[in-house]
């Protein structure tokens, strides 16, 4: 950032934001097409070529819908929670190193900042459920709270071993440390732990417990409609895109790849993980939240701690 003229910096910021938000919007289209493909259906194909205008139609429809705010809700929390989820997701885009010179901010404590920002989405879900003041939403927010304490720790442990390997908390340095071999190969356990935890962080199946439409009707967003609902919806998909970008950054060597390095490798890896998210969602049933907690506390956390220990020992003596 330092040394860049303000105008170029602003252009970069707007450009990256536009790309990420477009990707999030089209993730909804991709979800419907991939789901249809997995289930031998066709999916949306009428609005524009291959149904590509469908997301725009969806947004317009949600925009013009009547906003229903039930009388018992907490007006302030009900109003701000959809914003919190989007704030966290958009703020995280600033930290992602898309290519060697294409990153908005590279603070020396980038990883810590990122963990802090991404925890906001968990709060958004918890508060949204509480603000609705209905029983089903409350259960959704209870589950979200249980989920947060389950996945945040293994996730941080997985990243901790990556940080140990790279010797830096800066995301750019972490990618640069993978110029020869991505951490997915040198840190397979951390990679798998992170991959599982990230499904819980983004509230995606098989860990979409706070939403769980077959059990809790709509969970935390039951009482949201119109654009307030749309923010949650867009937030979830933006989160999927950002989470895929982070997997790429932490474990797959970012912009490095066979052949010429560059932003295209970053895009290909990220899109693969976006697809991976959809693929898992449409092929697995949902777990129970006590099963998720058991799994996180009895399997993932001990495994993550062990992994850190081994990594540290290798760093000392290797």
């Amino acid at each position: 950032m330092s040394g860049q003229p303000l105008l170029i910096f602003a252009a970069k910021a707007v450009g990256i934001l536009a790309v990420v938000l477009t990707a999030a919007t089209y993730a909804t289209w991709a979800e419907r097409r991939v789901a249809a493909w997995i289930q031998d259906r066709i999916g949306p194909n009428k609005t524009g070529p291959f149904g590509l205008l469908q997301p725009i139609a969806d947004v317009l429809k949600l925009f013009f819908k009547e906003e229903i705010v039930p009388s018992p809700v907490d007006p302030l929390l009900h109003f701000i929670t959809p914003g919190i989820i989007m704030t966290g997701v958009i703020a995280a885009t600033a930290l992602i190193p898309f290519a060697e010179n294409l990153t908005l901010a590279d603070p020396p404590v980038g990883v810590l900042l990122l963990l802090g920002i991404s925890a906001l989405s968990g709060y958004s879900v918890i508060l949204a459920g509480m603000a609705s003041r209905t029983k089903y939403s409350l259960l959704g927010s209870l589950r979200a709270a249980a989920q947060v304490v389950s996945y945040e720790i293994p996730m941080a442990l997985a990243i901790a071993s990556v940080v140990l390997m790279a010797g830096s908390l800066s995301l750019v340095d972490i990618v640069k440390a993978q110029s020869h071999l991505p951490f997915a190969i040198t840190q397979p356990i951390a990679f798998i732990i992170y991959l599982i935890a990230v499904f819980a962080e983004t509230n995606r199946a098989p860990f979409d417990l706070p939403e769980a439409e077959s059990e809790l009707v709509g969970g935390y967003h039951t009482e949201y409609s119109s654009m307030r609902f749309a923010w949650f919806f867009a937030g979830e998909y933006a989160h999927v895109v950002i989470a895929s970008a982070l997997i790429t950054t932490f474990f797959l060597g970012g912009w490095y790849g066979p052949g010429p390095d560059g932003v295209w490798w970053f895009a290909i890896k990220t899109l693969f993980f976006v697809y991976f998210f959809l693929w898992v969602r449409w092929t697995y049933p949902r777990t129970r939240y006590d099963q998720l907690m058991k799994f996180a506390w009895k399997v993932l956390i001990p495994l993550g701690l062990l992994n850190i220990l081994i990594t540290a020992l290798i760093k000392i003596w290797g």
């Binding site: 289930q39 199946a205 769980a212 077959s214 697995y284």
Partner: peptide, 21 residues
């Protein structure tokens, strides 16, 4: 039953589509 496990918008739907076909 798969819907009940997987949710109307989750993985259960894939099984549901197969059975309904």
């Amino acid at each position: 039953y798969s819907l009940d496990l997987g949710g109307a918008l989750g993985g259960g739907t894939s099984m549901f589509m197969q059975t309904f076909e």
